[in-house]
Design a protein around this nucleic acid. Structure first.
Lengths: 194, 194
DNA sequence: CCTACCGATCGGTAGG
DNA sequence: CCTACCGATCGGTAGG
C-alpha cells in the first residue's frame, strides 16, 4: 500500500510550494506536477486545498507548543527553563522554517473556523512565554519592565529566523541557538551566565 | 482634476486589501468595489496589478531606509545613533504596519526584476544595522559576539511589531518605541542609561 | 491513477 | 468612467 507515504509526499510538496509562492499563488496542478501526477489524482488523498493548508498550520503550532513545553519542563530554575525553552523555539524555526513561515504568512488564507482555532493556539503559545517571563521577574532573575512586550519580542526573534535562515548556509543550528539565547537573556534583563 | 488623488485612493485600498488577503488573494474587482468603481476603470490610473505591488514595496523599503538614515545622522555618539535609529525603525513598523507586512509577506509575488531590486534594497538596509553594531562593538560600547546575527535580530524585532501592533490598541507608539529600545540596547550588550 | 470537463473567476482590452 | 467581453486558469467532479 502506497497510501500513507503518498499523502505524506503531497504534504511535503505543498509545504515547499506554499512557502515559495504562497497559498493563493500555488495551484493544485503545480503540486501534482512535482509528483508527476495530474491534479484530479490528488483528490484520492485529500479533500481540498484548504484542508492541506489547515493541516500544515495546525501541525506546526501544535508541534512548537509541545517542543517548547517539553523543554521548559526539564528544569525548576526559571532562567534555565527560559533558556531551554528559547533554544527549542529557535530550533523549531530553523528545522521547520518553511512551515513556520507559512503559519505566519498564510493565516488570512485559512478559512473559518480553522483560522480562529490557529489564532487561539498561537495565543496559548504566547501565554507560555508571558508566564515564564513574569515568573522570572517576580523571582528577581529578570528585570524587564513589560513582560507582555518582552514575550512578543522573544517570539518575534524566533519567527524572524524563519525569514532568513538557510539550512545549507555556514551557520549551524547550535551556534544560532546559542547566540540567540544570549540575545534573549540580555533582552529580558538577565545577566549572562545564569 | 481628480487624477492624482484617485491614484492615491487606489494605492491606499490596495495596501488595505493586500494586507488583509494577500496579493494573490485580492482581485482587481475587489479593489474597484471598495472605491465604487468597476475593475476596468482602474486601468485609467495604473498599468497592472503588479505595478501596484511594486510601488508599495519599493516605496516602503526606500522610506524606512531614509527614516533610519536620517535618525542616525543626528548624533555622533554610536549608542545614541543606535537608539535613535532603532526608534525610527520601530516607529516605521507601527505607522506603516500594513505596508511593512506586505513587504515581508508578498516578496515572492513580486515578479523579476523588481523582486531582485527590493531584495537588494533590503540588503542595503540591513547593512546599515550591521555597520552600526560593528562600530559600537569596536568602540567598546556594545559586547555582542556576533554583530551580523545581532543586526538580524534587531531588524526582526521591528518586523515582528508589524505582525501584532494595532494603532487603536492601548499601547502608544512612544511607549512601544521606548520599551523596545531598551530591549535592543540590552540585546547588543550595552548597559541601560547610555 | 487517468482524461474530459464543469462553472467560476482571474487580469486585462476594446470601444465608446 | 462604463458595458461587453477575451483567453487563461482556477479548484474540483464524473466516470472509468
Amino acid at each position: 500500500m502506497t497510501e500513507p507515504s503518498r499523502s505524506q509526499d503531497i504534504r511535503i510538496v505543498a509545504v515547499a510550494l506554499f512557502y515559495e509562492r504562497g497559498y493563493h499563488g500555488t495551484s493544485m496542478r503545480e503540486i501534482a506536477a512535482r509528483l508527476n501526477m495530474r491534479a484530479p489524482s490528488l483528490y484520492n488523498h485529500l479533500d481540498s486545498k484548504q484542508q492541506l493548508l489547515q493541516e500544515i498550520m495546525t501541525n506546526d503550532v501544535e508541534l512548537i507548543t509541545r517542543e517548547v513545553s517539553d523543554a521548559i519542563a526539564t528544569s525548576q530554575d526559571v532562567i534555565t527553563r527560559f533558556r531551554r525553552g528559547f533554544e527549542a523555539h529557535v530550533r523549531h524555526h530553523t528545522r521547520f522554517a518553511r512551515e513556520s513561515r507559512i503559519c505566519m504568512t498564510e493565516l488570512a488564507a485559512l478559512e473559518e473556523p480553522a483560522q480562529s482555532e490557529v489564532r487561539e493556539a498561537r495565543r496559548r503559545y504566547a501565554e507560555i512565554w508571558r508566564a515564564l517571563i513574569v515568573q522570572a521577574v517576580e523571582q528577581g532573575r529578570a528585570s524587564t519592565a513589560n513582560p507582555h512586550l518582552a514575550a512578543n519580542a522573544i517570539i518575534d526573534l524566533g519567527i524572524g529566523i524563519a525569514r532568513w535562515y538557510r539550512a545549507d548556509g555556514p551557520l549551524t543550528e547550535a551556534t544560532l541557538a546559542g547566540t540567540y539565547s544570549d540575545f534573549a537573556l540580555n533582552l529580558i534583563g538577565t545577566q549572562k551566565g545564569n
